[in-house]
């Protein structure tokens, strides 16, 4: 069969989601953010919510998320996305509202806002990209940086005596009454991406059904910050991140 016969509109089985526009994303090659952006774009469209979604972008690498996904956005101050999202959702209850935050934003400077929004059971989804490093500012230590892991501000490796321990904020969130769905996923393989898509869809639906807060952590790579190739970063993540940040659902009360 000639290739021209295959490349026909009716045979198209995968293309860049429509909501993801043509603006080139500023992320480094192989960055997990792009995959999650694609999933968010797909799910919003699949739920028929293009006109009723407001995203809240953070400070961090995803600060420009609003440039790439063609929905309405509010760009929040560092760490404050859950407070911003709280107000939007309470004031427009029929809107789909989510925050998109990194580890520094969510688990460090915005810990109070995250914990309290989740504890109030705000009908929002928090998407939490955990790559154990501050990417945007050039690879400094994050609250989720692993023990012994080297970053620009712990160049000799994270040391508990100096820096304390990596924060498992998702485990913390699972213990809060306000959360209905807390899960930890990844996007390094096709299988993992499909699972993450299901998790995000479920979280978004929970928020529209008024079931409470959902937190979807996505253990991610930062190959630039980790100073590895994208492929090697995925492998490193499997070997080092997954044992500490174990994948799977931590809490799901939505079927009860």
């Amino acid at each position: 069969m000639d290739i021209k016969e295959i490349i026909q509109p009716e045979n198209m089985v995968y293309h860049k989601p429509d909501l993801l526009n043509d603006v080139p994303m500023h992320y480094c090659p192989g960055c997990s953010h792009g995959v999650v952006h694609k999933l968010v774009s797909e799910i919003v469209a699949e739920m028929g919510m293009n006109e009723k979604t407001v995203g809240v972008s953070p400070v961090g690498c995803a600060v420009f998320a609003y440039k790439y996904i063609d929905i309405d956005w509010e760009e929040a101050a560092h760490g404050r996305a859950p407070a911003v999202a709280t107000a939007i959702k309470r004031l427009w209850p029929d809107r789909l509202v989510f925050t998109y935050q990194g580890d520094g934003d969510l688990a460090c400077i915005g810990t109070a806002e995250s914990i309290h929004a989740l504890n109030r059971g705000e009908n929002i989804t928090i998407i939490f990209i955990n790559n154990a490093i501050y990417g945007m500012t050039g690879g400094q230590m994050a609250p989720t940086t692993l023990m012994g892991m080297k970053t620009a501000t712990c160049p000799y490796g994270r040391d508990a005596k100096l820096h304390g321990y990596p924060l498992k904020i998702t485990e913390l969130a699972a213990n809060l009454e306000g959360t209905c769905y807390v899960t930890r996923q990844s996007v390094h393989t096709v299988g993992a991406i499909n699972k993450t898509k299901k998790a995000l869809r479920k979280a978004f639906e929970n928020s529209m059904q008024g079931k409470g807060s959902s937190l979807v952590e996505i253990v991610s790579t930062c190959n630039s910050g980790w100073k590895m190739s994208p492929e090697k970063a995925n492998k490193w993540m499997e070997e080092n991140m997954f044992p500490y940040y174990q994948l799977g659902d931590l809490k799901d009360t939505t079927n009860q």
Binding site: V56, E74, A76, R80, A83, V84, T86, A87, I88
Partner: peptide, 10 residues
């Protein structure tokens, strides 16, 4: 801090 950011959101 949170109130003013809720105001921002709203």
């Amino acid at each position: 801090v949170s109130s003013i950011n809720m105001v921002y959101g709203g």
